[in-house]
Amino acid sequence: MSSRTPSRPLGTVTRGTTNPNRLRRMDRWIVAALGRELRRSDDPVAVDLGYGAAPWTAVELLGRLRTVRADAEVVGIEIDPERVARGRAYERPGLHFAHGGFEVPLPGPGARAPVLIRAANVLRQYEEAEVAAVWERLCARLAPGGLLVEGTCDEIGRRHVWVALGPAGPRTVTFATRLGSLDRPSDLAERLPKALIHRNVPGEPVHAFLSDFDRAWAASAPYGALGARQRWIRSARLLATDWPLTDGPTRWRQGELTVRWEALAPR
């Protein structure tokens, strides 16, 4: 990333595209994955980094987190001051908006460490070579046991792929979709996060994974008579014989599948 004076936020203004419920699949997964940590946190604050031209995703994230922790807080952070001003019209107890970037400034006194940083559709415009440094910077801001969730989805939230990272680095990759929108699992390749999207070529692990996923999907076609959900679950069972999946039928029923990062990491 280019060098900047300390007073300027780190990063570049995104297109800001957003829609209500766009991140509902990601939020649902976050609540399941992070619920235990939220419950025991002394400071259950989360960051919606680069929420876009409207504050819907920050508002919705707060609602999701408060199903687990009634005193959860969300800070929406944007590098565009005009977007921050629009967001502040929606502030209420537990929901705040701040001007900033990858330095993740949290308003108020003290050095607060977020239990969650969600950065959806933020790194898409950056170069692949810049991703590792951004991940490292954001992970360094996390509370112990916290998560950075960074990924990409389409405009109405039908298809998502995201990486979950802890303070020590990347852990998993999750593929999530509205199953009725899917012809084959490799359709999700267009939503791979920046660290992986240019690696979907022969010889790279993510390409091998998606190819195997398509083969499992084809082999599971008879289960389609029972619905797309049953076909997805059967495909996941087949994949699990060769790939280190970290979830099971409870998540698969949601149109999700999570695999360990090291299995898909670029060579």
Score class of each variant (00 low, 15 high):
G52C: 07
R64P: 08
V201R: 14
R237E: 15
P170M: 06
A133T: 12
D212T: 08
G63V: 05
P55S: 00
T258Q: 09
L23T: 15
G145D: 06
E82P: 07
L106V: 11
P20S: 06
V173W: 04
E73Q: 15
P205F: 00
L95H: 09
E262W: 11
L257D: 01
W135N: 09
V122T: 09
K194S: 06
G16K: 01
H96E: 13
T241N: 06
V173A: 00
D27I: 01
G101T: 09
R178C: 10
N21C: 04
F213G: 01
H207P: 05
V122I: 11
L226A: 13
D42T: 12
A168W: 07
D214G: 07
T177A: 14
L123E: 01
V84G: 02
L264W: 08
D242W: 10
S186K: 12
P185R: 01
R24Q: 14
A113Y: 04
Y223S: 11
R36T: 12
R229Y: 08
R66E: 12
G11L: 04
R22W: 05
E91N: 12
N200Q: 05
V149P: 03
A189M: 10
P202W: 02
W252M: 03
R86V: 14
G52S: 00
T258L: 05
V45N: 04
R199S: 08
T241C: 00
L49C: 09
S3Y: 10
R36I: 10
S220N: 07
Q230R: 14
G94P: 07
L188F: 09
G100D: 00
P9M: 05
G203S: 05
H160E: 02
V75I: 14
A218S: 10
V13K: 09
N121H: 11
L148P: 03
T14G: 07
R118W: 06
R124Y: 13
E204H: 14
I156E: 14
I156D: 14
T177V: 13
L264V: 15
D80W: 00
W243P: 09
P167F: 08
A53R: 15
N200P: 04
G157N: 02
L239R: 04
G180R: 10
D48K: 04
C139F: 02
A98F: 04
R69Q: 13
A32M: 07
T258P: 10
S2L: 13
R137P: 02
A133L: 04
F213N: 03
Q230E: 15
W232D: 02
R92T: 12
E128Y: 11
T14L: 09
G145W: 04
E256L: 13
A85I: 11
Y51S: 09
P109E: 11
G50S: 08
R118C: 04
G100Y: 00
A225Y: 11
T246Q: 08
V74M: 02
Y126F: 15
E128Q: 14
V206I: 15
R118I: 00
P55C: 06
D42N: 08
A119T: 00
L116D: 01
V68T: 12
L65P: 02
P107Q: 02
R253W: 02
I197R: 15
W217K: 04
A132C: 08
P167Q: 14
G11N: 03
G11T: 07
L61V: 06
T57Q: 14
L95A: 05
E155L: 13
R237V: 10
A53H: 13
F213K: 03
E136R: 15
G169P: 03
